[in-house]
Computed example of a mutant assay.
Amino acid sequence: KKNHLGKVVEMVGTAQDITEKLKIEKDILEKNHMLNFAEELAMIGYWQLNVGNGSFIWSNNMYRIFGFEMGITMNFDLLLSHTHPADRELVMHKKQNAIATKKFEKFTQRILHEDGEIRFSEIVGKVITDKEGNATKIIGSSRDITEEILAQQKILETNKNLEESTIKLTAQNKQLAEFNQITSHNLRAPVSNLNALLKLYNKTQSEGKKIEIFEKFEIVIERLTETLNALVETITIKKNGVEIMPKLEFEQVLLKTKQTLAATLIETKAKITYDFSKAKNVDYNPIYLESIFLNLISNAIKYRSPDRVPQIFITSKKDNNRTVLEFKDNGLGIDLKNHVNKLFGLYQVFHKHPESKGIGLFITKAQVLAMGGSITAESDVNIGSTFIITLN
């Protein structure tokens, strides 16, 4: 208040205690700080979209998640600029669908930072409407789930590797079982022949015959050693994942088979003739091809007719760039009308014989199929059988 001379003679005022207000403001600032810190730790950001003008309100962590400079004015077009190109149509569709249906569907989008880093974000939201039911705002959150996605991908990759390892181990176990069968079956013939040669050697009185039989001993043992070495080599090759297919001469394979079955051929007087003029060789797995010859020839002798000398005729030819082998015998034959579906089955036996195991034809078919070929048979009871093998 001033006097008549204009001097201040009185002052009137009020005082207000703002301690509580400052405390509240401080608490709010601390809570905001804690919220921002919690957002950052949880890798969650909060946002609000104004449907009318397309403007955004973002929390601090939204800027971090999307790789934007803190505090810049956000809009939908700017958001799309940091959205992976392949996901932009999805994001626009989700926005339009939310406005139209008044419902927000959760989705995952990829975020593309300026340095090229790709992040994954899970988006959830809720549509806010006015009294007339029109969408005015969409509020929601974005959670950075990159680490979860990468962990899932790693788990899927690990599972895939485990599945591949399981398949590989299963295949290796199958090969092991197959080689076990091949080894036991293919070694039975030379061992049996060694026993037969030993009996012949003990029975004969002629020194000349003994020398001849002893020479056959050496040949059968040599073939047995070759078979064992070939089996070991084949297992090693399969283990290393590289399969070698040498060019095999049919005449040489047949010679080895005859040498292996020397005693059986002497005892049964079996005659083997052949014609390989139309196809002399083939690139093939040596163990498989020698096994095929051994099984089919030994079977032809084993199931010979008691009324005639066993005769086996083997031919080869070319058919559409594939090699075809035929093994024809004059043995007991097989009733294919009743046994055609069992012919190549495991442990299937069609004639009584002390050495019948029902394994030879099963192994032969398995070996032919493993190499991409095929095997069929024709047979008449008491006339003989013909096995036709198409080699790939």
Rank of each mutant, 00 (worst) to 15 (best):
L169C: 00
L169D: 06
T170F: 11
T170L: 08
T170R: 11
T170Y: 09
T170I: 08
A171I: 00
N173F: 05
N173V: 03
K174E: 15
Q175M: 09
N180F: 07
N180K: 08
Q181P: 00
T183A: 10
S184K: 14
S184D: 13
N186S: 09
N186T: 06
N186D: 13
L187R: 06
A189M: 06
A189Q: 07
P190V: 07
P190G: 08
V191P: 00
L194G: 03
N195E: 13
A196P: 00
L198K: 15
Y201P: 01
Y201W: 03
N202D: 12
N202S: 15
T204P: 03
T204Q: 07
Q205D: 10
G208H: 04
K209P: 01
K209Y: 02
K210I: 01
K210L: 01
E212L: 07
K216V: 05
E218D: 13
I219Y: 06
I221L: 14
R223K: 14
L224D: 02
T225H: 11
E226N: 08
E226M: 08
L228V: 12
N229I: 03
A230V: 04
L231E: 10
T234K: 15
T234G: 07
T236E: 15
I237R: 11
I237V: 04
K238A: 08
N240E: 14
N240V: 02
N240L: 10
V242K: 14
V242A: 12
I244A: 10
I244F: 12
I244G: 04
M245K: 15
M245S: 12
P246T: 05
L248M: 12
E249D: 12
F250P: 01
Q252R: 07
V253H: 02
V253L: 10
V253W: 03
L254V: 02
L255Y: 05
K256V: 11
T260S: 13
L261M: 14
